[in-house]
Write a protein that binds this DNA or RNA. Structure first.
Lengths: 224, 224
DNA sequence: CTTGCGAATCGTACTAAGTACGTCTAGCGT
DNA sequence: ACGCTAGACGTACTTAGTACGATTCGCAAG
């Protein structure tokens, strides 16, 4: 009873409930469907109520980005640095894939939240215990994150096109093809990319290993 | 005379002039400042006039993205594949850096323009003549573009923060730091990232070489 | 030089979205 | 029981995209 009353009354809204709903809405309907009004409907309330918990839409987006970082696994300290980073990067890619709207947002937010900072700290620590000097740490971090973000960005792109129409889109693209204007692209599509067993995501581990192997060699060179 | 008259009269507007102005405006004031009204002002005209040349704002953005691709150097056919790709990737990074707003757009456009298609074709051809089998071509392309896009995205991020306030921003971030809550980040910043000779962009060539070297090794393994 | 046609331009207005401001109300402590 | 305050809400203003119809301009033919 008191539970019911409390549930309906007191904590009707909270920053967390709003963030959860916002992320769910963005996951489901896309980031462009995330409007304050739609969010209010989702929460069974009115637009202005949301402003009592969150300081404008920018702050909402900042909060969502930080929540995304909170979902990413940090590099496990008990693993050797390469394995630890592999775990972290795979998790990051998976999380970004689950929240495709977040990828372009990562770029435009300039208010790092606590989760983001903690995440960065943990990665830096891992690179440090790999024995990298600071300049190499900087390169390693920049390079790994560039790859992860960029890959997630391309995957998000593909996902949208897949969900959009597929047939219509493919037809449109095909129509733009002069017969044989792009022979290599055509061959590539026909003989590989359109095959049922082709999976863009398979390239992730390939690239990740390329980078980790290269970094390991760089560490070895430092040691010598 | 007739030149003057023609210059003032006939071609008052055109798709090209609109695209140029839109890109200039986005470069100068940021993509969020690119509104149809602002663009009309920039061109000395009225909003609705623009719609006679371009089919809505989405089409405008599509056109801008394609224009960005047109600025990127294709891999020169006369160079060995690794050098050719290095030229292409460096150029891509430079162009994306010049048009920071374009990076998030690359993801959201699903109407590939002719320049984009031609660019992709040229890269695929280069990978093909490197002797890669199609599956490796796919991996190479995915991995290289992920890195280039992701790197450009992070650079765009830094550029914004730099231009924004610098002092205010740095203070804000510093304020979020519990004294010593992020020791490795602090050390990294103090002893490396805040030093005047530190340059994030230096990591680009490092990562690019990591990937190209790794791909070259993969090609060699295929040969064996 | 006039006239008329079609393309380019513009004015008006509607819709969607973010949000400032003032009011209202429920539930708490006194 | 009563008033105080946090949270919720209604209204309305602002910015932005864009549909629709009227208007104007430049050129070519008479």
């Amino acid at each position: 009873m008191s539970d019911t009353r409390q549930d309906v009354r007191k904590p009707r809204l909270s920053r967390e409930r709003i963030l959860d709903a916002a992320m769910g809405l963005a996951d489901r309907d896309g980031i462009e469907a995330l409007t304050i009004r739609a969010l209010a409907d989702e929460l069974g309330t009115k637009p202005m109520t949301i402003y009592h918990h969150i300081d404008g839409k920018e702050a909402l987006l900042d909060g969502m980005v930080d929540a995304v970082f909170s979902e990413m696994a940090k590099p496990p300290v008990e693993l050797e640095w390469r394995d630890a980073l592999r775990v972290r990067c795979r998790s990051a890619r998976e999380v970004l894939g689950r929240h495709p709207w977040s990828v372009p947002l990562l770029e435009s937010r300039h208010h790092p939240g606590p989760e983001l900072l903690a995440h960065h700290e943990s990665v830096l620590v891992t690179l440090d215990r790999a024995g990298m000097p600071l300049p190499l740490v900087a390169h390693a971090y920049a390079v790994l994150d560039s790859f992860v973000y960029g890959f997630a960005m391309q995957e998000a792109n593909l996902a949208v096109q897949r969900g959009d129409e597929d047939a219509e889109l493919a037809g449109e693209i095909a129509a733009a093809f002069d017969p044989g204007a792009y022979p290599m692209m055509t061959r590539f599509a026909m003989e590989h990319a359109m095959r049922p067993d082709f999976n863009f995501g398979d390239s992730f581990d390939v690239g990740l290993d390329l980078l980790l192997d290269g970094l390991a060699r760089a560490v070895d060179r430092e040691r010598a």
